[in-house]
Design a protein around this nucleic acid. Structure first.
Lengths: 188, 188
DNA sequence: ACCTTGAATTGATCTAAATCAGTTTGATTT
DNA sequence: AAATCAAACTGATTTAGATCAATTCAAGGT
């Protein structure tokens, strides 16, 4: 990603769209279904976006002469796996408020990496895209934003966000009294 | 996996365990955090299990002489990504009944691949592990099993499962009238 | 300036699933 | 055989979040 923002999504067995990721400048996407020459995911720009294509065939060729490239590709692939698993954990064990807070803090951190403001930013995605990604409804997303605003954690104006009390959001996520579905170790 | 069964799990930011996968004979696990020499996931056997370790260093070395190995590794990694994203879609857009039905059918299909009975099998994991994996509570898992049994979709006796009406379970998953959180395409 | 049109917000109601509270069952220990 | 202990099941109650239904707001289009 050079500039702008992209969402990736796939169509599940029932023909429904499932947003699988949001990508910001500096990030790489499209690691799925590499060797099959078939991508499970599609991607669309959510605003004017410029990207830099990396033709996989060429990358593969390059790696025959520069073996470290291969290692790097594998590193990036397993990073992708880790971030997918973070999302799984988020979806499986957190409340709607926690999920939205996580997303906001994630975006904030990623913007900070690009030396952009981590407290004031414009969300590139719609409420519908957020809700789909986080496994909830638009209404719940909207209410969660309003709730955060009432609690003075942030200011919202449509897609404009200003994070005011980041620690509060952090704490919300790690709050032990919030919903947590814990597996009790099986016998064995 | 040679025989038996294994679950993989990671500890999320809040110290809670999140089951990320169940592995059956014929499958490979442990693709996460390869190049970082650090695995996000731990794995434990859920019953007497025999596995075959593939030392990554050796695999890497081998791939310098046999380049097709490298391609194969990447293929397997992106398969892992696809299965994680299937789980994401499952968690984000399906009801408790649908999620459990999906898991049962997935196990059934994987057993069939190994030429084992796809209709009668013993679940290696506890209700707690299922509930954690599927993002719900033990009680809900238990009730879903009872519900399926009442509906004559299957027979349950603790971990022993007999699938009676697989088409009904399939249909349950793809039922359009069931909960579906669909993203409405954003403008542009 | 007026009329779309879709995104977002807000309120009221409903429901799936969480929580709380036992009970049953089966395995292991004594 | 009785006691212990954890897994699993079941029922009653509560609640988070879905669903239904308006209303507001901004962006284009005519």
């Amino acid at each position: 990603m050079r500039s702008g923002s992209v969402k990736s999504y796939c169509i599940d067995n029932e023909g429904r769209e499932q947003v699988t990721g949001f990508y910001l400048p500096g990030e790489i996407f499209g690691w799925d279904g590499l060797a099959e020459n078939y991508h499970q995911n599609a991607a669309v720009a959510m605003e004017t976006t410029s990207i830099c294509e990396i033709p996989y065939g060429q990358l593969e060729q390059l790696s025959t002469t520069i073996p470290s490239i291969q290692k790097h590709v594998i590193k990036l692939l397993s990073k992708e796996i880790n971030s997918d698993q973070k999302l799984i954990a988020l979806l499986a064990g957190n409340s709607a408020h926690q999920r939205l807070a996580s997303l906001l803090l994630s975006i904030s951190a990623r913007l900070a990496q690009q030396k952009l403001s981590s407290t004031r930013f414009r969300l590139p995605m719609s409420r519908g895209e957020i809700s789909n990604y986080l496994g909830m409804t638009v209404e719940t997303v909207s209410r969660a934003f309003s709730h955060f605003q009432r609690k003075k954690y942030l200011k919202v104006n449509k897609k404009e966000i200003e994070l005011i009390d980041k620690p509060a959001l952090q704490q919300l996520i790690s709050n032990p009294e919030a919903r947590s579905i814990t597996s009790q170790r099986s016998g064995y």
